[in-house]
């Protein structure tokens, strides 16, 4: 479905120092700098897989999605999506995929939502019967009834995003690239979109590659995650494996029958809420610490778990050093 080999993207950006002198100099001699956004990685995604694509801001996620969907030409590498080279933008390819970017609206601002849908029907040449069925289905799944007749500018952000997602799926694409589909939405709307994506992918056997800052999205939808950092592949596997690999800690939560003293000697105290204490303990010592806690203190309840995914991801991104080769970005005068 998706096959990526040695994908690289280097942007050439103009570079100028502040100040009038620098502005004048730049008239004569333009300086530019190469920025490596994606630094060569391989990945294979099979039909029907829902894959979370993670990385901090600037890791190269959006650049990669743009290359996979055909907006950007890579500097090097080979990509096949649905049997096509995306940046050729062949019609047969464009009819079978979609790219949803959280903050870009495709809907026509001033007219009712359903009129924008109608335009998409014509653009994608969706047969009438199929269009009616899909529209009914999307209306039901996303709860769009009541929104369809409203002009887009009168919708709330959450309502608009639901409509954007529906518009992007009217042609029943087999490949979905979703860039932050839940960005800025409240928890209810996020859950709704998330549930919908899962249902759609399952019903149509669609392949989904999704980026999100909300780990809840990823946990709910993706069995597999691909993590990139500084444009390189850092991890490819299950979410559970990601946690095992990158979190050297376990979280121990205890409820005490009695006063809570200083528990710093057992591990790092993360939080204390009334009688409940949460500790972070190195993975290897978890068993020993648990034993000591039970022996020393009036423990009413105890549980050991992995730290929240958010925390693990945070740690991966903040601690992983930048690889030496990408740190050196070339400076060239043109």
């Amino acid at each position: 479905m998706v096959s990526v080999r040695g994908l690289r993207k280097i942007y050439v950006v103009p570079e100028r120092e502040a100040g009038l002198g620098a502005s004048l100099r730049s008239l004569v001699r333009r300086r530019s700098k190469e920025v490596v956004a994606v630094d060569g990685f391989d990945v294979e995604i099979g039909r029907g897989e829902v894959v979370g694509f993670l990385g901090p801001n600037g890791a190269g996620k959006t650049t990669t999605l743009k290359m996979l969907s055909g907006l950007l030409y890579p500097t090097a590498g080979e990509v096949t999506v649905l049997g096509h080279t995306p940046w050729r933008r062949e019609k047969a390819f464009l009819r079978r995929m979609t790219l949803v970017m959280g903050q870009r609206n495709q809907l026509v601002w001033d007219i009712p939502v359903v009129d924008s849908f109608e335009l998409n029907r014509a653009i994608y040449r969706i047969p009438d019967g199929e269009y009616r069925d899909t529209l009914a289905e999307l209306t039901d799944l996303l709860d769009l009834e009541g929104l369809l007749r409203k002009p887009v500018r009168n919708l709330s952000l959450g309502e608009r995003m639901k409509c954007e997602v529906a518009a992007a799926l009217l042609h029943r694409p087999a490949m979905l690239f979703l860039d932050e589909p839940t960005l800025g939405l409240d928890v209810t709307a996020q859950r709704r979109i998330r549930g919908f994506i899962a249902t759609y992918a399952e019903r149509y056997g669609a392949t989904v590659l999704l980026t999100s800052h909300y780990m809840a999205d990823v946990e709910a939808l993706c069995k597999r995650v691909v993590v990139i950092h500084h444009g390189r592949l850092l991890f490819d596997g299950s979410l559970a494996a990601l946690i095992t690999r990158f979190s050297p800690y376990k979280t121990v939560v205890i409820d005490l029958d009695g006063p809570v003293g200083d528990l710093g000697r057992y591990g790092e105290v993360v939080s204390v809420e009334e009688q409940r204490v949460t500790l972070r303990v190195p993975k290897g010592e978890a068993a020993a610490v648990t034993g000591r806690l039970l022996a020393d203190l009036p423990v009413a309840d105890l549980s050991i778990g992995d730290p929240p995914v958010d925390e693990v991801i945070d740690r991966v991104f903040s601690e992983e050093p930048e690889p030496a080769s990408t740190a050196a970005t070339g400076t060239a005068a043109r």
Binding site: K66, L71, K91, L94, R95, L99, R104, Q106, I123, Y124
Partner: peptide
């Protein structure tokens, strides 16, 4: 503004 991008990804 990048609003050209969605237009480029339409099959027309």
């Amino acid at each position: 503004q990048g609003t050209l991008s969605p237009l480029l990804l339409r099959p027309v």
